[in-house]
């Protein structure tokens, strides 16, 4: 077992996955369960996406024992990382994966929203595409519902497909209690205390759109989720019945489980 190491493993631990998630730059990844990895159903279709698929899988699951030259090993190592990422995208939308990522989210492992009005809301990693090598990972803020680039360049090189387009939305459907209250506070550009007309006009137009949306939600008797809400609808329990995403139960929206 000890001879399958590659050039990267100065402090090599006995598990490839341990090494992988603890190495610098891979802070966004959570550890995939052994059982999940060994269930071939979960890996359907990945054999066409990953070079040296079988070797890479062996490496990830710590059963790799091929004797080969360094160049080959490097290739396999690269494939293993790619494979891990692709499986990761599937894993994090399962119940266990969501729970693991939720813990990381709560700890703020993915960073805080840079937007001032979001008051350091923790972020979630996401991809803009589910196809590998399309775009690097982005960070989603649930408070302003926008995407941001990771601060650090070592994160900016991670493939977005390793997290996928759906994960962060599923997380908040499964754990709606984690949804932060939305804020209407915003930055108003001013010059010597006076609002600037062009920006202010746009703000007013946006506020109009917002009120229209609130009105639509109100008519459908749905909470708008804004922080400083003018009390028109009190928290009535029957509101929950109208909602697509279900109520408070954490396990309610078990979406993808294998």
């Amino acid at each position: 077992m000890d001879d399958f190491n590659s050039e990267t493993d100065s402090d090599y631990t006995s598990y490839w996955r341990d090494w992988f998630i603890s190495s610098r730059g891979n802070e966004y990844f959570c550890e995939i369960d052994e059982e999940y990895l060994t269930d071939r159903f979960n890996l359907t279709g990945l054999n066409t996406e990953v070079q040296y698929y079988q070797y890479a899988l062996d490496l990830v699951t710590d059963v790799f024992d091929l004797d080969c030259d360094d160049e080959m090993r490097e290739q396999i190592e690269k494939s293993a990382r790619h494979l891990y990422g692709l499986v990761h995208a599937r894993y994090i939308v399962t119940t266990r994966g969501l729970a693991k990522m939720l813990e990381k989210f709560k700890k703020g492992d993915f960073g805080k929203c840079p937007r001032v009005m979001c008051e350091a809301q923790p972020l979630l990693p996401m991809g803009q595409s589910d196809v590998a090598n399309t775009s690097p990972v982005k960070l989603y803020c649930a408070r302003c519902e926008d995407l941001y680039n990771p601060k650090s360049s070592r994160h900016a090189s991670i493939d977005g497909a390793y997290f996928g387009t759906s994960f962060h939305n599923i997380l908040f459907q499964v754990y709606p209690a984690m949804l932060p209250p939305k804020t209407q506070k915003r930055y108003e550009p001013r010059i010597f205390g006076f609002r600037v007309h062009a920006a202010a006009a746009l703000c007013r137009w946006q506020a109009e759109q917002r009120e229209q949306m609130k009105e639509r939600l109100r008519q459908a008797r749905i909470e708008t989720g804004f922080e400083e809400e003018d009390e028109e609808i009190e928290s009535e329990d029957d509101i929950d019945d109208d909602m697509d995403a279900g109520g408070d139960g954490f396990e309610h929206g078990a979406i993808v489980q294998q």
Binding site: P176, M213, G246
Partner: peptide, 19 residues
């Protein structure tokens, strides 16, 4: 989610697009 847009009416649906 899986290519389908999340409805505005969902509890986790988009509320900040106006911004």
């Amino acid at each position: 989610i899986y290519g389908f847009r999340v409805s505005e009416r969902a509890r986790s649906g988009p509320r900040m697009k106006w911004l």
